[in-house]
Amino acid sequence: MAENNKPRDPETAPILPSGGDYFGVHFILRLFLVALAVTSLVVMVTAKETKLVPVPTMPNFRVRAKAKFTDTPAFIYLVATMSVTALYGIITAVVSLGLNSKPGSATKALLYFVFWDVLLLGIVAAATGASGGVGYVGLKGNSHARWGKICDNFGKYCRHFGASIALSLVASIVLVILIMLSACTIHRRIPK
């Protein structure tokens, strides 16, 4: 507690080098998060394919089949999550840019960042897992449950949702890095 009596300006405190908040890095990472989320969103929404597929009971007869992302609830969940992530990323990028201009006494803001980032990380990871699980069944099929694979017919559709899932995986990794950055910044402020 004796350390509390020392001056705690970011310029003078020895544990806090100037610019120790890393809000500039926050801003760049959050913009990257927005870019990832928007790309994932666009790639998933444009995953549409119409193809002639053979009917299982009549091999010579083909029907027009359409594949869209709304066919699977997991993909709808991913689209919703990515929209939320993009919006959240824009808001927090603006906030961190504002905090960057006035250094010092921003530990509380970092704490709020950790709260909301962890919550969003849970949601994004769950969406990635859900879409990945369903996408894997679509790619490989499951003989035990008699779920046939669809990627042999709908190649473009599969490439689209695969790319979208990969992008959302990168988005969750970016969120993990952001939380680590905030936590380490708070941790470095503990007086030795």
Partner: peptide, 29 residues
């Protein structure tokens, strides 16, 4: 661990929902 557990929960829930509801578009009963 948060990231891992949430993603595995999401995957299992999605497959579980598929088991409960099926998916008529891709003929998964």
């Amino acid at each position: 661990m948060v990231a891992l557990l949430f993603s595995s929960n999401g995957a299992s829930t999605a497959i579980g929902v598929m088991g409960y509801e099926g998916n008529s578009h891709v003929r998964w009963n």
